[in-house]
Amino acid sequence: MALPEREERSFWIDGDRLRTEPVPGADLVVDGGWLLPGLVDAHTHPGTESLEDPFGDETLRRHLTDHRDAGVLLVRTPGSAARIPAWVDEDPAMPRVRSAGRWLATPGRFFPGLGRDVSESGLVRAAVEEAQASSGWCKVIGDWKHNEPALPLEILTAVVQAVHAVGGRVAVHCQTSEGSRNAVVAGVDSLEHGMHLDPGLIDRMAAQGTAFVPTLSVFGAGAESKRAAEPSAARDWWLAGWEAMLPNVRAAHEAGVTVLAGTDSFPCGTVASEVEWLVRAGLPAEAALGAASWSARSWLGLPGLVDGGPADLVAYETDPTLDASALAHPSRVILRGRVIA
């Protein structure tokens, strides 16, 4: 059964392409079960695991392999400590990657030296450079500490206009109310986290096509420790934002915003947990699964299970819309026409 259509269909693989007509000499690799376009993690940072660990090829390969073995065959890296090296695209055993180049951070708005530190006056030029040097994306740190100002709206608007002018797209990290507002009003292409997003902006996001990547699983994992922490302004601010996130995600979906699954956490290959959180937020199971598969692939410019499309697919013995945890246990993984597992 092929998803999302829920139709019994047969596919053949010709090189790295899917075909709906028989290919002579083909071997049977999947018989029955449920077929999905390869899973997608729309917010992951492979290549380094902590502030102390340098970005490296060995770690990057391990992280991408973990994604692939879990059926995540397309990843989007909205910001990294270094640009994704060319060998990733050249290696047929690696998932497809859509990179936003290096994080772009203005003074005081990120971990010093982890991304590309730029002045506010130099941000527009740097954003265009990163977009053109990567997969067409750039990533801007739109805010940082809860009690400090976000990147000014006029600067972020100029970034969006300049990057769009060269055919690129802009992702923005934002967790404060001001940062989220500025990102939406500036017309960014994706809102990353959006912890204190004003629900009054959701209709505007839908109208202009701003996607929402809430990364619920990484926040959910830290919620209990935050509640147990000593009271402080930062703790109360964080908890207030977390309490609003699930209702905002549901409202965004209902308004027609493209909601995508991204983990922003380690280990890699755990996008199934983000799907479970999207369901918990109130998305229908099929929409939550699409956020980590066909909807995300379409948003990133790749088709699903169609004739001539990329032969990137995962198979399951049971319907993953009935049990999101099944996503962590594919029965078959096929990447670029090659059987991985």
Rank of each mutant, 00 (worst) to 15 (best):
A127P: 02
V75E: 05
F110E: 06
V97W: 02
R109S: 08
I84M: 13
L39G: 01
S121C: 01
G115K: 08
P78T: 13
P46T: 06
S119D: 12
A70G: 14
F111E: 09
V118K: 06
V75K: 10
G101I: 03
P85M: 10
S99L: 12
V40Q: 15
T48D: 12
A81Q: 11
S80A: 15
L51H: 10
L73E: 02
L51I: 07
E120L: 15
R116A: 08
R62W: 10
A82S: 14
P78R: 11
R98V: 15
F55N: 00
L104K: 12
A93K: 14
G113A: 11
D57E: 14
G56S: 10
L39M: 14
G38S: 07
S50A: 09
A82G: 02
L74H: 09
S121I: 00
L104P: 11
A86C: 12
H67I: 08
R116D: 09
P37E: 03
L35N: 08
L39T: 03
R76M: 15
R61N: 00
L60M: 07
V72E: 06
G79P: 05
W87F: 15
L104G: 05
S50E: 01
R116Y: 04
D69L: 14
T44Q: 10
R76S: 15
E49V: 07
H63W: 08
R68W: 00
P46I: 10
P37D: 05
A127Y: 03
S50M: 00
A81F: 06
G122T: 02
A42T: 14
L51E: 12
P54I: 02
W103C: 12
S121P: 00
L51C: 01
F55E: 00
D91G: 13
E49S: 09
L123V: 13
A127M: 02
A93L: 14
G122F: 01
F55R: 00
E120W: 03
R61P: 00
G101N: 02
A42Y: 14
S119N: 02
G56F: 00
L39K: 08
G71F: 00
E58Y: 06
E52W: 11
E49N: 01
V40S: 14
L104C: 09
L114E: 14
A82V: 01
V118I: 06
D66L: 08
A126N: 12
T44R: 03
L51Q: 01
R125G: 04
P95M: 07
E52A: 10
L73I: 04
G79T: 01
A86G: 10
L64D: 06
G115V: 09
L35V: 09
V97K: 06
R96A: 03
D53K: 13
S121A: 15
P107F: 13
A105V: 11
G38W: 09
L74C: 02
F55T: 00
P112N: 07
V124M: 04
R109E: 05
L36Y: 12
V128E: 05
T48E: 10
T106S: 07
S80K: 02
D69C: 04
A126W: 07
L104M: 13
R98Q: 09
D89L: 11
I84L: 12
R96W: 01
A70V: 08
G47F: 10
L74W: 05
